[in-house]
Design a protein around this nucleic acid. Sequence first.
DNA 1: TTGTAGGCGTTATCAT
DNA 2: ATGATAACGCCTACAA
Lengths: 351, 351
Amino acid sequence: MDKSSTNKNIKLSDVARLAGCATGTASRALSRPDMVSKDVIKRVQAAVEKLGYTPNNAAKSLRSRRSNLIGIVIPTIDHSIFAQAVNALENRLSQLGYSLLVTTSQFDLKRELQQTQMLVERGSEGVVLVGRMHDPELYEFLRIRGIPYINTYAYRPSEGHPFVGFDNSKATAQIAEYLFTLGHADIGVISGATKDNDRATDRVAGVKEAYRARGKELPPDRITEQPYTISGGREGLRYLLSKGKRPTAVVCSSDILAFGALSECNALGLHVPEDISIIGFDDHELAAHLRLTTMQVPAVEIGQRAAEYLVAKLNGDPVPDHAELEVRLIARGTAGPPSRKTASARTEKAR
Amino acid sequence: MDKSSTNKNIKLSDVARLAGCATGTASRALSRPDMVSKDVIKRVQAAVEKLGYTPNNAAKSLRSRRSNLIGIVIPTIDHSIFAQAVNALENRLSQLGYSLLVTTSQFDLKRELQQTQMLVERGSEGVVLVGRMHDPELYEFLRIRGIPYINTYAYRPSEGHPFVGFDNSKATAQIAEYLFTLGHADIGVISGATKDNDRATDRVAGVKEAYRARGKELPPDRITEQPYTISGGREGLRYLLSKGKRPTAVVCSSDILAFGALSECNALGLHVPEDISIIGFDDHELAAHLRLTTMQVPAVEIGQRAAEYLVAKLNGDPVPDHAELEVRLIARGTAGPPSRKTASARTEKAR
DNA sequence: TTGTAGGCGTTATCAT
DNA sequence: ATGATAACGCCTACAA
């Protein structure tokens, strides 16, 4: 390592000169060592080392038309379930020789479109998207440019897009069915904002479908939309309690909401699951700790599979366009049979 | 929007031809509209629209020697406190016209070096680092190439590097001092792995320093290192209880560890804070919910400031190299005065 | 096996 | 204000 030099603009031709060969040869020595003599390779490597040469990726990309960059547009990174997937995605991409460009849509489909275009301009060869509903122009943009992409955290192959994830509405339908089996007949739903959010929308829809499958309907006042926060969950629970007879069970579309609901039950002196059952979604790191019954989401596998899918596509390798991953209902302590006695009208206590 | 064409390889010269001007003029029309006539701008924009032109970023970077890319190497994204900072960093960078390349070191300094070099090869103009201890070669690499960088989540200006963050050892010293003031004299520490992790190391050191400031020493068997998980926290608490008389308070170097410790106390029938005080670090989203007394860390501000610092440096704008951000001890329900009666030796219950 | 030379798409420079 | 031309650093035919 040459310590004194301020070797900023070392280029391959400098390496070649020092190694006593042509630039093209030096290039081959580095990227196709099998096409070059042992001796030259050694000299080139020595020169690289001595000069502290780093390839210029812009030039490489320009010439080779390959950036080795993958982009992801995520609603927000500040969400443990997405963070886990991004982490897994990055690790797998890194192993496969790709780097990850991360950007956020803030749950705004127009912004998602803009950010995707930006990622592509920046050279992303493939794009990871969250959910299944995107601006139609987004799909068109990707199609025209021939950029491979994959929808994650959702599964709806009939829509004709590549998916790695699970069907959100089937997942909550399964939760509701589980509650029905336990004996519940009156279920409330605390949802995150459904606008521009197909995961949230589908999760609410799943509960409705489960009702319909039993020939019933989920009443509109059994659904409340709240911000994805603890206090959103608390507020949601209070809302549900304020509508006449209280539901015997509550399905939350994220664990954070469920934590808030749990917290509010605690504050109100409601016993879980005796007085009311609460079920979450995600299997957050702390769900086990709080004994929350919840739906486990394969975030890590989603990240890994998305990486593998895109890289396979880019290499022209065959790879299925649809991977339905398993979600698993983890029965812990917050859901049980409804209590025999009719729920006493204690809603006034809820403010 | 031209729907039928498969406009992949539209270049600026195509736009220029359609707009009836020279390539260079078209370039200026897009990037320096003030140097070009209104008329040409309009024609160029129309041509861009019609052809669906997207600039080739590799060519742009190669020629202009600017990538508008910033890189970050983070131990893991899968950690709410880092996720928050990355989220804030990305949002701020996006506003400033930069994109973010994210990569992870997995708490390994050699890997951190490699990843940093990779980020720079990929064209990052600036680099965000976590912590203050890095491979010396990393600093050298950045210095030689003249790449601006900033250390985050730490503050030690005497080391001669740019910092935006807080002094981890001062923070835990403050926690220990708070406990001393409450009347505690025997404090245990549950730390994350300190290897290659200056934040963890400094946090342990802070408690030691607080002891020394009072002319005492923190006994080695009052410190345990555990993985950053709930069960790490539980295990850590059990370890501390297994060493003779139990400490009256425990400082955890992250909230996750504290949640585990709390959980274990609960399982053991230990009342918090009557029997034992527990303090965390981070002010995790759920800390308020669990009434955890903890140190609040300005993750969002760290992310924003890091973005602003690097962009200012790249623009040649003056900007201070050191920003010490405030941490704040949030007193909630898990720390209080030690109980009067001598703690009964109930350690055998802790397995 | 190695050298030579042209071009990837853009912006900068120098004219006009 | 605009046009022409030359790089930016690398890779890859093609020639030797």
